[in-house]
């Protein structure tokens, strides 16, 4: 389990990283936290000719809240997200989500930019970007490009980034103070990739949803912002309504099978998550019986 030989360059600036990417394109891989890249290289699943280490680009690190917008640098580590007061105030969903990302050792190294650029369909953060309405900021030879989260994820390990582009930051609208969130995933063990997960952000007024964004993950080849959530807006949610939305959600899913779950089981668990999420956000235990905390 030794990686194939590769060249290594430590980028001295974003501009330098972009020069290297322009010159080497698909033959190069960007090293951020290395938590997905290095295992894949050691297993010889991939053999990049050049590793561009962006670890010293401090300008890509950190969280800032300005004018109702939260900007998170691509090199911000999972552990930093967990500790950030700005995240706690303006996007607490992320704090809940990050607690489900692997284990502390991995969270100490893994970065948000790395996770989004890797685009593993079972990862937590891509779905959060959908639920939070994030914008992904990429820089390339042609300058900066802003990509809406729901146009960013293109498939298993596939994104809208070109091989010459570097993901530099994400922007999130700061969530209103009375906004609510829900995060849950089913995984075989703590820290495993989810079998199915859900990141949700909602506004509840008088017991009804005024806004509801449901970001499902591990339900297909990319995270899914469920359109069927719209059916829950401004209605009195009854078991019948929920059942109807559940069926509509089912239509949206194109779940894949793997060793942990068949497609049918994934669809089932997504429906369970929907019910538990709605029940929790509306504080309506009648919608969801039989679950102990």
């Amino acid at each position: 389990m030794k990686a194939s030989a590769f060249d290594y360059a430590r980028a001295t600036s974003v501009a330098n990283a972009l020069e290297l990417l322009t010159a080497h394109g698909e033959r190069a891989r960007v090293l951020a936290g290395g938590q997905s890249l290095l295992p894949a290289m050691n297993l010889r699943l991939i053999a990049p000719e050049l590793i561009i280490d962006i670890g010293e680009l401090d300008e890509l690190r950190g969280v800032a809240a300005r004018g109702g917008v939260l900007t998170i640098g691509a090199l911000t580590r999972h552990a930093d997200l967990q500790k950030s007061p700005e995240i706690a105030v303006h996007a607490p969903l992320l704090m809940d989500a990050v607690a489900h990302v692997a284990h502390p050792a991995i969270r100490n190294r893994g970065t948000i930019g790395g996770s989004l650029a890797q685009a593993d369909p079972a990862s937590e953060l891509p779905a959060c970007m959908l639920a939070l309405g994030a914008t992904i900021i990429a820089r390339g030879p042609g300058g900066e490009r802003r990509i809406a989260a729901d146009e960013f994820f293109a498939g298993i390990y596939e994104t809208a980034l070109t091989p010459q582009e570097l993901l530099v930051a994400v922007e999130l609208p700061a969530q209103p103070k009375d906004s609510m969130h829900y995060f849950q995933e089913f995984s075989r063990r703590h820290g495993d990739y989810a079998i199915v997960g859900l990141a949700a952000q909602a506004l509840v007024r008088d017991g009804r949803f005024a806004d509801l964004r449901l970001g499902f993950f591990a339900v297909g080849d990319r995270p899914l912002l469920a359109r069927s959530a719209g059916k829950l807006l401004d209605v009195a949610v009854t078991p019948a309504v929920l059942s109807e939305v559940s069926s509509a959600l089912d239509e949206e899913l194109s779940s894949l099978g793997d060793q942990q779950a068949t497609p049918a089981m994934r669809r089932h668990l997504a429906r369970v998550l929907l019910t538990r999420c709605v029940s929790s956000l509306l504080a309506r235990t009648d919608l969801c019986a039989g679950v102990s905390a």
């Binding site: 779950a261 049918a264 089981m265 089932h268």
Partner: peptide
């Protein structure tokens, strides 16, 4: 006793 085995036995999937 995986979730898949148990859900299948319960007829949920």
């Amino acid at each position: 006793l995986t979730p898949q085995v148990i859900l299948t036995a319960l007829g949920r999937i």
